[in-house]
Simulated assay, not measured.
Amino acid sequence: MAWSILHNGPGMKSINKELFMIMCGQKPDLTTFDLNNFLENDLAEKLAKVVRCSTTEELTELKNSLGDWICDCGVPNIFTAFMSDLPTIYWQLVTHFIYHRVASIIQQFTSGLNSCGRLWEVVLNNWKAFLPLFTNTRGALTRNEVRDLFDIVWSSTGSNRRDLEEETIFLWECWLMSIQDSVPPLGFQQKCKVEFYDQEEPTRRIPYASTCALTLYLPRGVSEEEDFKELMFLAINGSLGFGKKAMEHSQRTKRRKIAAKVAEHFRLVSQQNEFEEQHFNLESTYNEPLEDSAYHDCVEDVTENVENEYPTDVFYDALDNDIFYDGFENGMADNTSDFDLDSECSDSEHAASDTR
């Protein structure tokens, strides 16, 4: 890091601003500190409770419920504190968790910088000048700043495609005014590009991006602002990178995973001409037919922890329970109540599954 800075490198630009000021011996205002910076939900809730304390009764309750915890954080005067002491106590708590708790790591970092020309001592004496090198000082992007990040790959001037592309870019700039974002702390390695594609009736392709090539692909000829907004938000919200955890915990996704693995297994079996050797039945380990309730219990047992298992484990658990017998015998046509992809999965999920 020190060599990078000394040779006109970009710096790290990722240290929290308040933490950097404390590292430099300053005393920042922590009343506006964003508690979302803490990954521990329990910690953020406890600190928020200190912030919300506004009456003597609430202070007494705070001492009773969190007094020992606050004392363990290096603030022993909590039990004799008054309302006027709460801002100082809150400052000490936040400082404890962002600085003192990781002081040994910070000391290694600053010692490393000092090993290269006593750089950290220079930073201490000129901390304001080094703020842009160690912290992310970028604000929210404006429409013009976003537009300047991109080179637009236009079609030939005067062509019909160029007219359609200009309509799309106009709506894209309108959409930019309704959102807020920021550039990554280290920026981009190259300028981003906007390219276009044609919609093919009767399908409707949503916008997409290449994160490797830093290219955004937009549809030509979208003439209505609401249609463009719908496409953009559908593309963002439908991406596997957004809301993936919630999807993983849905029963619909669990069923789709198992059904997709079953279909893949059948394809391989068919290729190897071994279909007739597969014996699937609905008999229990005691060779007794499963009742309907027992059948659904098997399904629930298989899908209960599917998000924590490897896909192959999920599939073979299903086979061990023999819960797909009817679907195999009838070409997956007559037993779709629990694995009906068309009724329970959206088109975008089908597309994502086909892609995988």
Rank of each mutant, 00 (worst) to 15 (best):
D151H: 12
A259Y: 06
L231M: 14
K49V: 07
W172D: 06
I258D: 13
F228N: 05
E145I: 08
I89R: 09
E309H: 04
R205G: 15
L218H: 03
E45R: 03
A48W: 14
E226Q: 05
H296C: 00
K63R: 11
D198N: 12
H100A: 05
N114H: 04
L43N: 09
G67L: 02
H296K: 07
E18F: 00
E121R: 10
P76F: 08
V183N: 13
V153L: 06
M12E: 15
V262G: 02
W91E: 06
E291A: 09
M23D: 02
M83Q: 12
N126V: 09
C212S: 14
S353N: 01
I179F: 11
Q189T: 15
E264G: 03
M232T: 01
T355N: 04
L131E: 09
F82I: 14
V146N: 11
P76G: 07
T142C: 02
F280D: 15
E224V: 12
G9N: 13
N281P: 07
G117K: 10
L6G: 02
F280P: 02
L47T: 00
S111R: 06
S159C: 11
S270E: 12
D34Y: 12
I258S: 03
V302D: 10
E288T: 13
N281Q: 13
W172M: 00
F170D: 00
W127I: 01
A246V: 06
G327Y: 00
I179M: 07
E288G: 04
R162I: 05
P184R: 13
E45L: 11
S155F: 02
A103K: 03
K193L: 06
C24A: 10
N308L: 14
L133R: 05
E274T: 13
H296L: 08
D85V: 02
H296P: 09
L113S: 12
I323F: 07
T203M: 05
H265I: 06
D68W: 00
